[in-house]
Every structure is written in structure tokens, then in C-alpha cells.
Amino acid sequence: MTETTGSTATPESGNPEGADGAAETTAAEGDKKSGKKKSGKRAKKGLFARIGLFYRQIIAELRKVVWPSRNELTNYTTVVVTFVVVVMAFVAGLDYGLSKLSLWVFG
């Protein structure tokens, strides 16, 4: 199947895997050898068709996203804001301490 990272053998690509896990000869390689033009599903589409396909794929991917609930979003926001405030206080403390130290050292 397609569990291997980086595998291009998917049913959508028309690139099935063989029994040994390696991809068979692709349709594009077969077309190059025989000199035939691509047709059907693998043919190059026009600009607007490609743009439409791109947006359909975006919408399909967004439907797969697991969106956080309102409660989870509130918790995540609270954690992030608290962390930012703590880091800001730490950096401000370092800045204040180092400025006093440099004032003491250099007069």
C-alpha cells in the first residue's frame, strides 16, 4: 500500500505498487516509450481547470481538519497568552537587570 514515506504509488496517481513494494512503470514512462500523447485523466488541463482543481482540493483538505471546540480554543488561547506574559516578564527583568549592571560598571 502507500504507508511508506515518500511513496508515489496511489490509486489517484495511476501508479500502482508491485508485489515487491516498488512502483511499476508509470503511465508517463509508457507514453514516452511508445510516443503516444497523454489522454483522458492524465492529460494536461487548461489553466482554469487546474485552478478549479486546486480549490476543490483545498476544500477537501479543510474538511479533514479536526477543528477545536470553543472550550478547547479558550484553553489554548489562555495557555498561549500566559506563556507570552511570562516570557515578556522574564525578558523585561533581564533587560532591567543588565541595564542596571552596565550603568554600575560603566558609570
Results as ranks from 00 to 15, higher is better:
T10G: 11
F83R: 15
I59K: 12
A49K: 11
E3T: 13
L53G: 09
G14V: 04
S102A: 11
V84D: 01
E3A: 08
R50C: 03
E3R: 14
F48V: 00
D31R: 07
I58V: 12
A22F: 15
F106W: 15
M88S: 13
T78Y: 01
L101H: 10
V87N: 04
A22I: 08
F90A: 14
L98Y: 04
R42D: 03
F83W: 01
E72F: 05
L94T: 12
L62V: 02
Q57M: 06
V80G: 03
N15D: 06
E17A: 14
K36A: 06
K38N: 08
V81W: 01
N15E: 05
T10N: 10
T82D: 06
L103E: 07
K44G: 05
V84M: 14
T25I: 00
L53P: 08
K100L: 09
A22D: 01
Y96S: 15
L98G: 07
S34K: 09
G6Q: 00
T25W: 03
A49Q: 14
T8A: 14
F54Q: 08
V80T: 12
K38A: 09
T4W: 03
P16S: 07
K38D: 00
W104M: 04
W104R: 11
N75H: 08
K45C: 04
V65Q: 15
V86R: 10
K33R: 10
G35L: 02
V91Q: 09
E72S: 10
A89L: 10
A9H: 02
V65D: 15
S39L: 02
T78I: 13
Q57T: 13
V86K: 08
G107H: 14
V80I: 14
V81E: 05
V85H: 08
K64Q: 13
L73E: 12
V84T: 12
E61C: 03
V105G: 03
R70L: 10
A19Y: 02
